[in-house]
Design a protein around this nucleic acid. Structure first.
Length: 352
DNA sequence: GAATCGTGGAC
DNA sequence: TGTCCAAGATT
């Protein structure tokens, strides 16, 4: 069963209110037959996973300027891609981005596969991204369900079952509304609606094209939906980072292991980060030196814990060999290549 | 299903 | 200042 009248109302709204985004083909251009580039659609969707449009904009521009095609990205050095992703977070995305680009080249001749099934098999492409690329780049009416769609559907149907348990029924609601015509514009329209009108807090229901049909509006429950299961409190961890500067200005850094937190990223050698209820980890400097503790500590909050990082610095002579990590010449180092927590430690060392 | 995995902005 | 939140994927 479908409700094409509601879908059409949203498409009409989108024709008038679609946001101008660097990766988007406007509905008017789309109507003239301009086709989106699957590479740009895919890249933007991966960048936008759990990340705001405002944060993605500059990264998207930088990536597409430097690597205009999937083949160009596939040929890039791992370290260059990780450095370019630094600051955007969820670094597994960058690792999978490269794996995916290389798979598209080696297994699909450098062209993104058009089928939802084949897209799902690629690294870093899950249910949402496969559906979004299918719909937006290939006009395939897949059911696109992201956080916006979940929120809009929960309100439209006054669904009080908390997430993530409600995911199934919300997907069913979304399927009913997905049109076979203009599925790409429709998918982007629901997400625009969620991002600009049907917002998490204080939704602008007065401006909503779906207000007449919305049960959350008629019941007065819209603003409190969707329900979510409560989140556990974040524990606090502590650790030490060692910032060794050689007399010629080179910094001692290491590439973190591929898996786990900040995997594959550049960082300062240091102790492990241990819960404050545990014993403090043993001293473990990466090079013999006179270490000086900075007056302030670096504080940073990750998805599931708070970190308080003690920053120690030292100046070391040219000939001394490190036990861990490698010295990177001053000319080859940019703090912007570091994940944010590591950049905070750097800023602290420079300022103090 | 539950954990893990970043960051910056809004309130 | 603390909490919530954003176009999720992977294990």
């Amino acid at each position: 069963m479908r409700d094409l009248s509601l879908s059409q109302d949203l498409l009409d709204w989108y024709d008038r209110h679609a946001r101008d985004l660097p990766w988007r083909v406007s509905p008017s251009d789309r109507a003239r037959g301009v086709a989106p580039d699957p590479y740009r659609v895919w890249l933007s969707e991966v960048m936008l996973q759990q990340t705001t449009v405002a944060a993605v904009r500059d990264y998207f521009r930088a990536f597409t300027e430097r690597w205009p095609t999937v083949a160009a990205l596939a040929a890039a050095e791992d370290a260059d891609v990780m450095a370019a992703w630094a600051g955007l977070g969820y670094y597994a995305r960058a690792r999978n981005l490269l794996k995916c680009a290389r798979a598209v080249v080696s297994e699909h001749g450098g062209t993104f596969p058009a089928s939802h099934e084949a897209l799902l098999k690629l690294p870093g492409i899950g249910r949402y991204t496969a559906a979004a690329v299918s719909a937006i780049a290939f006009d395939d009416p897949q059911v696109v369900v992201d956080g916006n769609v979940e929120r809009v559907m929960a309100r439209l149907h006054d669904e009080h079952t908390p997430l993530p348990a409600a995911k199934g029924v919300l997907t069913d609601y979304a399927a009913v509304l997905t049109p076979s015509e203009r599925p790409g514009d429709y998918a982007q329209a629901v997400m625009d609606l969620g991002a600009t009108i049907c917002t998490p807090k204080r939704p602008a229901c007065g401006l909503c094209p779906w207000r007449r049909a919305c049960r959350g509006w008629s019941e007065g429950t819209a603003a409190e939906l969707p329900k979510k299961s409560p989140k556990p409190k974040k524990p606090v961890r502590r650790g030490t980072a060692y910032l060794a500067r050689r007399v010629d200005g080179a910094w001692l850094l290491e590439t973190r292991p591929e898996t786990g937190l900040l995997g594959g990223m550049l960082g300062w050698p240091g102790t492990e980060w241990r819960d404050v209820t545990q014993d403090a980890p043993a001293e473990d400097p990466p090079i013999r030196a006179e270490w000086k503790t900075q007056g302030a500590e670096a504080r940073h909050t990750f998805t599931h814990f708070h970190l308080i990082l003690t920053v120690k610095t030292a100046l070391v002579p040219m000939e001394r060999a490190p036990l861990r990590g490698d010295f990177i010449e001053l000319a080859d180092f940019s703090p912007g290549d570091l994940p944010t927590v590591m950049r905070k430690a750097y800023d602290l060392a420079k300022g103090g």
